[in-house]
Every structure is written in structure tokens, then in C-alpha cells.
Nucleic acid binder design. Structure first.
Lengths: 369, 369
DNA sequence: ATTAGCACTCTCACGTCAAGAGTGCTAGTA
DNA sequence: TACTAGCACTCTTGACGTGAGAGTGCTAAT
């Protein structure tokens, strides 16, 4: 039996993957014939299944169990076999409506995106906030709290707000602070970290520096905050829907009798670890940020070993040349790839449209596929 | 055998609670005699245990198992029997050092507090940000993003920063926006929500209102944000250390053979639910905010039924008359109350000192007990 | 190429059984 | 009266065995 991937074998592979994604039960030859009304006998299907196993697309947990897809099987399914599964118009409407309701609260967007992703795909979600690839100074505000303590509020070009406290050598009035911030705001309007650096440097070398000691102190804090920001850019991962993921049969011992219940507990702990530590994800974010379209990483394809049982579906979102972030789904390798991909694609497009609106670029169509 | 709580019975109760907290194994009469070198036989201890069971302080899972404390047992232990367990000087030093490092980054404080609480008490932690009981306007900034889109940054008296976007009818220059915000900042400096409300009302009733349409629109947004803030004040719960809690034996089937492994899974899911939904906690927060000292709620004492297996140790922190928040530990009823209480008390005092420093009140001693 | 038939393997649920842990009770002692 | 030794009793736990059922792989026939 030569191991050739015939048309029929591809069809059977597709059925096996779909069936397993749906039921989480290893699929048997008999089941396929019955459920999909195949015109051949179960014995024939068995031969084909054996061939698909030889080809590395299927495997079985033990000799008298049905087949489950390997990572390669899922991969082939995603690339070649999968049917598109666009969100229903009703779902699209609901989602758009939810985003419409919080459109003016910038910091709610990520929360909402994470929640909606998780609920729609029934798995955990990850979202990074929209950031410009290079932070530019937008605005500074100095607010006297008391005596020598000052609250410094820094607004960056992409809308990020950062707050710090600052202790001065001598007390200054709010009026003084206003003057300082006004000058810095004027000098630094819309310039990048490195340009501020240069500005400070040049000024210090003059005989009569333009900036006072206090202003230099403030600029130093700003620079540090901005640099810190650029370093952190990929690490700020917001996540939601752990519960949704843990409601998948993989984590419910009663539904997955084939194994020890302790495995399920261990798996839950591992999932929690992945989502809170961010290891294994932080590697994928920059990659997704640099790519177009939806990225899928399946099980063993991950570089991190603890991700071996999980797949990730990611997409970039944002406005070209202005800001960009990443959002996606993480779940067991047996996740519904069609649905996850559609969900990620749709929500990325909604977020992008919102951002385009905010940044004044013309709106694209929201309707999917 | 009259059910009287003699001195000796109290002592034995204390031993049982300590032993069970330490090992998570139901404690047997024999074990007590051996481990604590009691001068009486196991039979005598058995009689005392039976009496303590009659009194409602102990129970057993099944007839041939050791005793475990009831909620009432834990309660009596916490109120009357428990030894103090202050954090070691080394631990105190480490914690102070960690807070010192992020002292200027206000938004890091809560994160750090949650992390440190969780790691020190080996359970999950909850922290609400420090808020003043009534929000007062501090500062407004309007930043032109493009055309008619404006970013509104609102700073409240307690250092909270809130950002919103705003769409105007007609485009305004940044200079215009500066003038508007300057006037509002001047008029509204340091006043409360209701005072702003009044101000706006009075102004609208004049023949020639002082505030322009745009300014009124902005004030409306500010008011809404501030009101929303006051409503949310108890719901903004930050949490950490779920992993620490799930490392407790209660959640590890291998260590708690007495039950089905599926129970452990169900319990993990419930714990996750509690921490993410915030139900059952949100009731306790205002209560803790209104009390002095450390509050302990044990198992069935909770009003929420899903909290029956968990205990919570909470304390208020903050500066009297200025800002206050709540922090605490949540874990299985078999948590180390002495350690949790010390940890909560210590971190509350560190946070309070930090805030006092920020608000310019003299510092109290940091050392515990 | 397909299929009917069958032996084979492995899981799963159930029952049994013996060992062990811990108790409660009784009777006896200081 | 307070304590204790001893023992019967209960219940868990783990090991083992067994039979039913699921699903496969192979062979021989079409």
C-alpha cells in the first residue's frame, strides 16, 4: 500500500479532523461510514485510515481506539481542506454593537476585544494594546500633589497615558509647573525618543542651557518612561477567557475518560501558567506584528515545549504607519480552526476600523468574506 | 461527658488546627500524641476529640478518618488560640525594597502588592486601588488627535487618570483646546462631582452662560466619567496568585486521595470563577473599607454559597481622610491564618506609608508587631 | 479495488479481597 | 474520677481479576 495522498484520503482526513474537533472523541471507521453516509464499507475506510497514519496525518492513542489528527494532520487541514466559517450576520451585528457602545473609552477596547474573542471562539484570547512602532511625545502635564511631590502625566502619540510621581528638590507652585510643562510641550511636540535625547544632549553642551535643572530632571524621567515603554511593547499582553478554554472537553475528566483525571488537573495548571507567564506567547507576538493576515501555530510547531498541546491563531490589527497591535485565540490543538480564524479576522478588522476612525483614515467595509 | 471547653480541649483543638493547616491530612489521635509528645495516651486524646466534635469545632470526613476543623473550629482558633506569626525581618526588608524600587510608578503599586501578597501567603490575593471616598476634579487635558477627534485626559484628586475620546461638531486647533481646558481647570479646581454638577446647572440658567457649547460638552463627559468612577469604586478588583492558590494540596488530587480527582478539577474551576467574576468578593470590599484592622471571613460565614470552601483575610489601607483601598488574601479554609493575617497587615502598613509619603503626612514606623 | 468475517488488543466498569488506618467502647487501674 | 489498654468495628485504598465492548488489522473471497 503505497503512501500516496489520494483525493479520497484527503476527503477522509477532512472528515476525521472535523469530527474530532466537534466531538473530542477519537473517530472510528464505523462512525465515519454511519455519520457521513459513505458509500464504502468500514473496512475500506480502515485501510484509508491506516494509510493516513502511515503518512503521518493521523495517530491513535492505543491500538483499539479510533484515530485522532497529528499536528501535521491539523496543519494540512488548515492549509488545504478547511471550509471557511464566517461569523453569522447576527454575530457580526452584536459584536459591532458592543464595540460601538464603548467607542469613546479607549482603554475598554482591549478588554472588550479579549472578552468577545474568547466568547465567540470558546477559548482563551490574547490582545496587545495598539501601539506605534516608535513612541512619539505628545503631551506632558505636571500636577502638584503637595510640597515637593509632583504627578507627571505623559501622553504619547498613540494615545497611551503613563503616570509617574516625581520628587523635587524644592517645592514649586502649580503655576511654575505649568510654565515648565508648557515649554517642554512646545519644544518636544511630536518628536521621538531619540530626538528628545538629542535635544537634551545638545542643550547640555551649551554655555547657557535653555532648560533649567528641574526641566532636565523632568525630561530625564520622560525619556526613561518612553524607553521603558518601547522595551515593554511586546510584553503587555492582556488575556481573557481562561474559563472558556477550561470548559473544553480536554479539561473535563468526565468527558475524556481515556486518561487519568490527574492529567486534566496538570493540564489546567499548565494552561494557567501559559496565560499568566506569557512565555511562549511573547515570542509569537512580534512575529504576528510583522506579518499580514492570520497566523496559525499548531501544537508541536511551537518553540516552547509547554505549548505542545496548544494552538494559537493570531492576527495583527491597526492602521498602517500609525499604530498596530496583535490579537488572537489560544486553545487546545483540537480547536475549531475555521471558527477561530474567522473570529480573529473579523475582530481584527473591527478594531482596525475603530482605529482608522480615530486616526482619521477613511473607513473600510466591516462585512466579512 | 458534658460538652465543656476545658483548657486541655482548647489546647488539643489548637494542635489539631495547626497540624491540619500544615499537612492538609486529617489528624489522628495517635499522630498528635507522637508528634507533640503528649503525656497522655491516644485513647484520652480520642475522648477529647470526640468532645470537641460534640462542641462543633471538629468533624471527620468518614468514620475511620482523623479529625478536621469545622468553620467554627477555625473561627475559635483565629479568635482565641492562634499564635502571632510576624514576617521575618528578612522578609520585611525584601518587601520594603521591592516597593522602594517602584515608588515613583503609581500604577505598579497594586500589581506589586498583589504579587507580594500572593507569594508571601502562598494563596491568591486581591487588591483594590487607593481611591478617595469622593472623587474630586484635579486636572483636565484636551489633546487634538485629528480633525474633530479629541483625546480627553482627566486626572482626579487621588491620582487616578482616565482617558476618553470625544468627537466634536467642528474641528478646533490645539490652541483653542488649550484655552478651553485652561478655563475649566481654573473653574473646577479641587471640586467634587456634585459641585461641578451645580456649577454647570447654574451656568446654564444664566442669560449669557459663561461656558461655551463645547465646554459644556466637555464638562458633561467629565461628569459622566466621574460618576461612573464613583459607581465602580468597589468593582475594580485586581488579583494575582491564582497559581499559588492552586498549588495548595486541596487542588492536587495526588495529595488529597480521600476524594475523587474530579472534585479537584471542579474546585479549580470554581476558584477561577470566584477570582474572575469577583462575586462574593465585591460584597466584602466595602465592608473592609469601613472597618479598622484585619477582617477574617471563614468558609460558610460567607453569604455567597460558592465561597463555602474559601476564607478571606482583608484589610483596609490608605491615609485617613484622603484615599483608601483594600487588600487581602483568599484561599481554602485550611489556610495559615497567622501567616495570612501578618502578611496582610504588613503590606497594608507598607502601602499606607507609601501613600502617606505621597500625600505629605508624616511617616509611621514600618516594623511589625 | 472492495468487503465480509474474525481474531486480536486494549479500555473500562465492576466486583472482590486483604491490608491498614482510625475510631468508639468496654473493662480495668491508679 | 480520670486515664488507659485492648479490641471490635467501619471505612478507605490499592491490587487484582473478569467480562463486555470498541475498534482495529488481516485474510480470503468477490
Amino acid at each position: 500500500m503505497a503512501a500516496i495522498l489520494t483525493e479520497r484520503r484527503q476527503f477522509i482526513l477532512k472528515l476525521v479532523v472535523q469530527e474530532f474537533i466537534e466531538t473530542a472523541i477519537p473517530v472510528a471507521s464505523e462512525t465515519l461510514v454511519r455519520k457521513y453516509k459513505l458509500r464504502v464499507s468500514s473496512a475500506t475506510v480502515r485501510n484509508e485510515l491506516a494509510a493516513l497514519e502511515d503518512l503521518g496525518y493521523l495517530t491513535q492513542l492505543h491500538i483499539s481506539a479510533g484515530r485522532i489528527p497529528t499536528d501535521a494532520g491539523y496543519r494540512f487541514f488548515v492549509e488545504n481542506l478547511m471550509d471557511r466559517a464566517p461569523l453569522s450576520p447576527a454575530e457580526q451585528r452584536t459584536i459591532r454593537h458592543q464595540f460601538y457602545q464603548v467607542r469613546s473609552e479607549l482603554d475598554q477596547w482591549i478588554h472588550l476585544a479579549a472578552t468577545v474573542l474568547a466568547r465567540t471562539a470558546q477559548n482563551a484570547s490574547v490582545v496587545t494594546p495598539p501601539r506605534s512602532y516608535q513612541s512619539r511625545f505628545k503631551h506632558l502635564e505636571l500636577i502638584a500633589i503637595h510640597d515637593t511631590t509632583v504627578l507627571l502625566v505623559l501622553v504619547l502619540h498613540d494615545g497611551t497615558v503613563k503616570q509617574q510621581t516625581l520628587t523635587l528638590d524644592t517645592a514649586r507652585s502649580q503655576e511654575d509647573l505649568r510654565r515648565y510643562s508648557a515649554r517642554i510641550n512646545e519644544r518636544c511636540a511630536d518628536i521621538s525618543t531619540s530626538q528628545i535625547e538629542e535635544l537634551v544632549m545638545r542643550d547640555q553642551q551649551r554655555e547657557h542651557p535653555e532648560f533649567s535643572d528641574l526641566e532636565q530632571q523632568v525630561l530625564e524621567v520622560i525619556l526613561r518612561a518612553m524607553r521603558q515603554f518601547e522595551d515593554q511593547i511586546n510584553e503587555e499582553i492582556h488575556s481573557d477567557g481562561l474559563i472558556e478554554m477550561l470548559s473544553q472537553p480536554e479539561f473535563i475528566p468526565a468527558l475524556i475518560k481515556a486518561e487519568d483525571a490527574e492529567r486534566a488537573v496538570e493540564r489546567m495548571r499548565c494552561a494557567l501558567e501559559i496565560l499568566t507567564s506569557g512565555r511562549g506567547l511573547s515570542l509569537l507576538i512580534p512575529q504576528a506584528l510583522a506579518s499580514e493576515g492570520v497566523q496559525v501555530v499548531i501544537g508541536g510547531e511551537h518553540s516552547e515545549d509547554e505549548m505542545r498541546e496548544y494552538s494559537v491563531v493570531l492576527s495583527r490589527y491597526g492602521v498602517n504607519g500609525a499604530v498596530a497591535g496583535v490579537l488572537g485565540i489560544i486553545g487546545p490543538t483540537r480547536m475549531s480552526y475555521p471558527r477561530s480564524i474567522s473570529t480573529v479576522r473579523y475582530i481584527a478588522s473591527v478594531m482596525s476600523d475603530l482605529l482608522r476612525e480615530l486616526y482619521g483614515v477613511e473607513k473600510r467595509s466591516l462585512d466579512q468574506d
